[in-house]
Nucleic acid binder design. Sequence first.
DNA 1: CTGAAAGCGCTTACAG
DNA 2: CTGAAAGCGCTTACAG
Lengths: 341, 341
Amino acid sequence: MPASVTIKEIARQLGVSKSTVSRALRDSSEISQETKDRVLELARQLNYSPNPIALSLLNNRTHTLGIIVPEIANPFFSTAIGGVEDIAYSRGYHVMIYQSHESYERELIDVQHIATRRADGLIVSVSSQSEKHDHFVELQEKGIPIVFFDRVSDAVQTHKVIVDDYKGAYDATEHLIKEGSRRIAHIAGPPNLSISRNRLQGYRDALQKHGLPFRDEWVVASEYSQSEGTERAYQLMALRERPDAIFAASDRIAMGVHWALRQLGYRMPEDIALMGFSDLSISALLDPPLSSVAQPSFEMGQQAAELLLELIESKSTPASFETRVLKTNLVIRRSSMKNIS
Amino acid sequence: MPASVTIKEIARQLGVSKSTVSRALRDSSEISQETKDRVLELARQLNYSPNPIALSLLNNRTHTLGIIVPEIANPFFSTAIGGVEDIAYSRGYHVMIYQSHESYERELIDVQHIATRRADGLIVSVSSQSEKHDHFVELQEKGIPIVFFDRVSDAVQTHKVIVDDYKGAYDATEHLIKEGSRRIAHIAGPPNLSISRNRLQGYRDALQKHGLPFRDEWVVASEYSQSEGTERAYQLMALRERPDAIFAASDRIAMGVHWALRQLGYRMPEDIALMGFSDLSISALLDPPLSSVAQPSFEMGQQAAELLLELIESKSTPASFETRVLKTNLVIRRSSMKNIS
DNA sequence: CTGAAAGCGCTTACAG
DNA sequence: CTGAAAGCGCTTACAG
C-alpha cells in the first residue's frame, strides 16, 4: 500500500528541517515567503494531507462529534442527524452516528466507544429502555460534554433541546374535541421517557379543560413502534366502550393504529378519528392522510450541535445550562376531520 | 477536564517502566505473573483504557470502516447499514456513516474525509448524480480498499454485492402480465446507475418474452424519490393511451405513484396495477398494500462488510475480485392482484 | 524478567 | 529566518 506523504518526506526533498515545513504549512510569520512557496508547491504536488491522527494525539482533540439515537431508520432521527451534520461540517467537525436500538446495553457500549475513541462531545436522544443514566454522567466526568435532544435525561445537568411536548399534545387533544370526539383514547410512549410523560399530561389537561372525563382504560402505554401501535389499537377497540378518537404519542405508533383500524373495518375519521405526533413525511401519504403534531427535527439537530460546540470550544464550564424549547405545529389532515365528513 | 489515565501514570505509581506496563497490559509472556497482576489491578482501579489514537498512529490502522449511502433515511440503506454494523462490531471495528444526499460534490467530500481520517476501508452505494468515479479509484490508490453494494461502479475493480436486479424486474413484469395487464409502463431510475439499467432490461425482456410491445412513451426515468414518482405518474396517466399497470424501479417511486393514482381517482389494481422494488416495510401498510420485489438489504450489508474486512486484513491484493449476486423475492400484495379483484 | 531508546507524524518552545 | 529537541501515548526491537 502506498505510504502517505509526510512532513518528513517534504523536508527531505527540500533539504530543510521538519520544523520549517510544519511552520510553512501553517503559514507561520517567521518563515520566509520563498521557503513557504517552495514547501506549499511541493506539498501540492505530492498531494500532502496532514495526518489527523498525529494532530489528535497532540491536541487531545479529534474534531469528531458522536450522536446516539434509538434508530436511524426513524425519519425523525435521521432528519435531526441531518441538522447536526449541517452545523458540524460547516464548523470543521465530523459526526459519528450510533444507534442504541432502544437497548440500554447497546447505549452503554456506544457511550464507552465514544469515550475510548475520544470524541470531543456527544449528542444523544436516550433509549426507551434506559432507566439509569449514570453512563452519561461518567462520560461528562471524563471531560466529554453532552447535549440531549428530544428524549432528555433529568439526571444529567447539561444543555437540552426539546419541543413543547405538553403543548403539542394539548393542542392535538383539543383539536380532536373540537372536531366532535368525546371518547378520546391515548396511546402513550414508555413512561420512563419525559416526552411520553409530557404528552400524556397535555392530553389529560386538555380533557379536563373541556370537562371530559379521564378514564384509565383509555390510556395504554406502548413502545414507539408501529407493531405495538397495532396491538394497542386492538386492545382499545376491543373495549366494551370504544373510543371515538385515538391520539397516539408518535406517528410510528399511529401508523400501526391506522393499519389496524382499516383492517378491523373502521372508517376514519367517521367511526374514529386519529392523530399522531412528529409528522413524518410518510404520514401525508396514508389513506386517509394522518393528522399530526409537527416537530422541527432538523432544527433540533442544528441547535443541539451548536450548543455542543459551545461546550467543546469554551474552556470553562458554563455558569448555567440551557434547555431550549422549540415550538410544535398542528398539522390537520383527513384522519381527524370529523366535522366536514 | 480530568486527564485520562496513561501508561506512564501507572508506571509511575508502580515504580516500573512504561515498557513493563505496556507488556503486562498485553499479557506478554516475558513479564512475571506478579508484575502483571499488580499492573492489571491498578489499571482496573484507575479505569485505564488505552488511547486508540496513539495506537492508530503506531499501526497506521484505525479499526474504523466508512460507509457512504445516498440517504440514511431510506430504509433500504439504513437496514443495510445495520448489516454492516453487525459484522463490523463483532470483529472489533467501528462504522462511520456518511450520506451523499445523491450529490457528486458531497460524495467527493465524504471520500476525502475518509482518506484524511484514515479509515481502514470504505463501503459505498454510489450517488445517482455521480458520473465520474475517479475519486474511488484514487482512494484505492491510497491503499484504502472499497466494496460496493447495490449501486456499484463499473469503473472500479473491487468486490461488489448486488441483487439480481434484472431477474427481479423480469419477475415483477411477468407477474403483472400474468395478472392480466397488457399495457405495462415502467418508471425507471437514473440511467447512470447500473441498478436502473438492469431493472429496465428485465422489464423489456419480460415484455418481449410474452409478445408485448415495448413502447418508448411508457418508459420514463425518475430520481429514486417519492416526489418524482408522483410527477412521472401524472405524466403516464396523461397519455392518450394509458397504461393499465406501472412497474416502478423502487418502492419510494411507487409510493409517489400510489399517492398520485389515488388522488387522480383510479382504483388499484382494477384500473391500474402497481409494483415497486425493494419491499420497504412501509409498503405493506399502504392501502392497497404495495406489491414489490424484496431485496435482502441486511444481508447485503453483512456481506459487503465481510468482503471489506477480508481486503483490509489480508496483506496482499486478491488475485481476483468477486461480485456476489443475491436473490430477490417477489412479494405479491393487493396493488397488483388484478385476477381476484 | 525488566528497562532505555527509538519511532509513529506532528507541533512548538528554545536557541541561534 | 531556521534547526534541534522534546513531547503527545503507545509499542517493540535491543540490551542486559
